[in-house]
């Protein structure tokens, strides 16, 4: 699954620093995400995970350092800009239109419709058919594509948001503690879905403090501790204990 050597990484974070007043949230962080990677971004509360993700997503600007998307240097000044560039952040409560159907949410902003100006008739049947196909293909379980999204579970909603993003050619998904509000069975489904999307080539950064989740779906990990990278590598080469040690600081690669 690993990106071939010499390939430009989808995302490259290089020496990124960020302070809030006197608090150094990120002292210096670098890592790469390649095509096919599911990268577990791990760390304790306050390690800098959220700050880092918010910088990539355009909520914050880095004080120093560079970010490259597909080899091109980017500087997002708003979440809208990063989204336009193909980066989607999925939170535990990603906004969806709850009273609209699955297919309406799937095609939102991309509706298939006629060309007649000011009165563009929707091609509802075609959109439902295509949505049904994609849902089946990605194994997203919904009762019907006509069901209102508000009646679905949190996990189903996230799957729709993520599936939609992937289907329309998204480049990089940032999942920020996506399972925080989900039950065990739902989280399991979510993990399976992340693995599925990863295997189809969507680069994913999974931010979590649950090591089990990272071990199950990620192929790489980056551990943050006190604003520094406390460890990174291939999941296959570490044990849960190793990860815990790096997160808590029992092993410190910076010394």
């Amino acid at each position: 699954m690993n990106g071939a050597e010499g390939n430009t990484p989808v995302l490259e974070v290089k020496n990124v620093k960020k302070s809030f007043g006197k608090v150094e949230a990120l002292k210096e962080v670098s890592f790469e995400v390649h095509k096919g990677d599911v990268l577990g971004l791990l760390g304790d509360n306050g390690a800098g995970k959220s700050t880092l993700i918010k910088i990539i997503a355009g909520n914050h600007r880095a004080d120093d350092g560079e970010i490259f998307l597909e080899g091109k240097k980017v500087e997002f000044s708003s979440p809208a800009e990063s989204r336009a560039a193909g980066i989607e952040t999925v939170y535990q409560n990603s906004p969806v239109c709850e009273n609209a159907s699955v297919s309406a949410n799937f095609f939102i902003g991309r509706e298939l419709c006629g060309r007649f100006p000011l009165f563009r008739l929707l091609k509802e049947g075609a959109m439902q058919k295509q949505t049904r196909k994609v849902m089946t293909d990605m194994v997203i379980n919904v009762p019907s594509v006509k069901t209102k999204v508000g009646l679905l579970s949190g996990g189903q909603r996230q799957a729709i948001v993520l599936g939609r993003f992937f289907h329309w050619g998204g480049k990089l998904a940032l999942l920020d503690e996506p399972f925080a509000a989900l039950g065990v069975a739902e989280s399991k489904n979510g993990l399976r879905f992340i693995k599925e999307l990863g295997s189809r080539g969507l680069p994913i950064v999974l931010i979590t403090h649950n090591i089990e989740y990272a071990l199950q779906v990620a192929n790489k990990f980056v551990i943050l501790r006190h604003g520094l990278v406390a460890g990174k590598g291939l999941i296959a080469e570490v044990t849960a204990d190793d990860l815990v040690s790096m997160i808590t600081g029992a092993i410190n690669v910076n010394q």
């Binding site: 609209a100 939102i108 563009r120 929707l122």
Partner: peptide, 16 residues
């Protein structure tokens, strides 16, 4: 129509 549907979607969730 698309515009009509947008009225619903905008009323439903502006951020989305």
């Amino acid at each position: 129509t698309r515009f009509g549907k947008y009225i619903y979607l905008v009323g439903d969730n502006r951020t989305a």
